[in-house]
Write a protein that binds this DNA or RNA. Structure first.
Length: 259
DNA sequence: ATGCCCGGAACGTCCGGA
């Protein structure tokens, strides 16, 4: 029964004790990390190996960076989405682990919108959709998980009116997220918790957002049909957000039947 | 009435985050 989790850690070096503690407590079979904010050679491989986890890393200096951790073998690693015009930002890594094809993705924020950064976000989403289509055609069970930087609907944001012009909530972002769903991918959390508002995965560091529970649900596990058929549990673990030196995101996890 | 940050790079202060 593999347990697969996603967590934007906002610097793996600054968050190392918190991540190691969570691995010990939650024992995921796969942990998909985003915003590791370091190059491959600076990733704390030895510390994770000591905790029993192998790593596959797609890093970048200062910004972005994604990784896959697992106690199981991590096979057939691919770094980056297909990019006809190139892409110098490390936002995607994919591999086969525990019988599933899994990806850790860090979708561009896109603010300010409109503008160049928003255009990059929408282009990146179209590339993700195209790649999801190719994976679907392969027929394998897969999980595309990470920080999507999209609040899918108004119940996923504490103040939808004030956030409607933000790149995370704009109709263009939501429309492309729905396109991904309509290909046949399932938002694991929403599938198992259809009527729960105020279930967030991110709370800003500023203005007391965490103690006031002013959050956003932007970290998602999107499942292929073959994976969705095996989905047995999904939840958001808020505990890490309340710790000292917390990331502004908290882990979201699923359990799938064995593949 | 109102809460205002954090990490990286670098060493002064800005960028990016969402």
């Amino acid at each position: 029964m593999p347990k697969i989790a996603t967590w934007n850690v906002n610097s793996v070096k600054a968050r190392l004790p918190n991540v190691l503690d969570w691995l010990t407590d939650a024992r995921p079979d796969v942990l998909l990390l985003q915003e590791i904010k370091c190059q491959d050679e600076a990733f704390p491989v030895l510390e994770f190996e000591s905790a029993g986890y192998h790593a596959a890393v797609h890093g970048q200096k200062s910004y972005n960076g994604v990784a896959i951790l697992s106690p199981h073998p991590i096979a057939d690693v691919v770094r980056g989405l297909p990019a006809p015009d190139g892409d110098d930002q490390a936002r995607y890594i994919e591999a086969t682990v525990a019988g599933y094809r899994v990806a850790s993705l860090y979708l561009p924020n896109g603010n300010p919108a409109p503008g160049e950064k928003f255009d990059y976000k929408l282009r990146w989403m179209r590339r993700l959709i195209a790649h999801a289509g190719a994976l679907l055609a392969s027929g394998q069970a897969f999980v595309l998980a990470g920080d999507y930087n999209v609040c899918p609907t108004d119940i996923d944001v504490y103040d939808p009116v004030n956030w409607r012009a933000d790149a995370l909530c704009r109709p263009e972002s939501r429309a492309l997220f729905r396109q991904l769903s309509h290909l046949g991918l399932t938002d694991a959390f929403r599938a198992l918790h259809p009527d729960e508002p105020h279930r967030y995965s991110f709370w800003d560091y500023q203005a007391g957002a965490w103690p006031r529970d002013l959050g956003l649900r932007i970290d998602h596990l999107m499942l292929s049909p073959q994976a969705a058929d095996r989905l047995v549990a999904c939840d958001i673990d808020k505990a890490p957000r309340g710790r000292d030196k917390a990331s502004d995101h908290t882990p979201v996890w699923i359990e799938l039947e064995d593949q």
